[in-house]
Amino acid sequence: MKLLDRDGVRADTFSRATPGDRDLHDRPIVPLESLETQLSSREKRHVGVEVSNVASVEQLAPHFDDLALIAIVFPAYSDGRGFTLARRLRNAGFRGVLRAVGPLIADQFAHALACGFDEIEAPDAIAERQPYEQWRRAGASISLPYQQGYSRANSIFEQRRLARRGECNA
């Protein structure tokens, strides 16, 4: 697995902890089932949780302030549910790190970032076939999207609105 974000390939400061795991993880990513116990026994803001793309906001919202990271699993690149879950979590106020885990492809980098993800944990095979340069290029391929209200502040609709108000005509 390789971890990619806006700046490039990064070392992962988190590690996976399984329920019966006795190793001490500094910054564990735990399954949803063991989240409560982990949170009670650790410093806040050091714990991440991994959820499937059908998890609900209601399950996670009570822990938003304690969680450092939420990792959402994409079972296949063609399964776009993770994008909606990320968006729902951001809408509900989650400010921690959002990670997409699974076989996303470089061409989805822009989608993931816009929906609120910060980083992608991609399988080695994909990361090797599609070096970071491809992710960077694909991520930047549409410099000004239409949609307003997604993570990038600027949009075509917003530019037009500003132009109407005579504020900016970049």
Binding site: G80, H111, Y146, Q147
Partner: peptide
């Protein structure tokens, strides 16, 4: 048409 073009969330329905 414009709103749905290259939509970040709804391109893998």
């Amino acid at each position: 048409r414009q709103w749905s073009s290259h939509h970040p969330e709804f391109s893998f329905l």
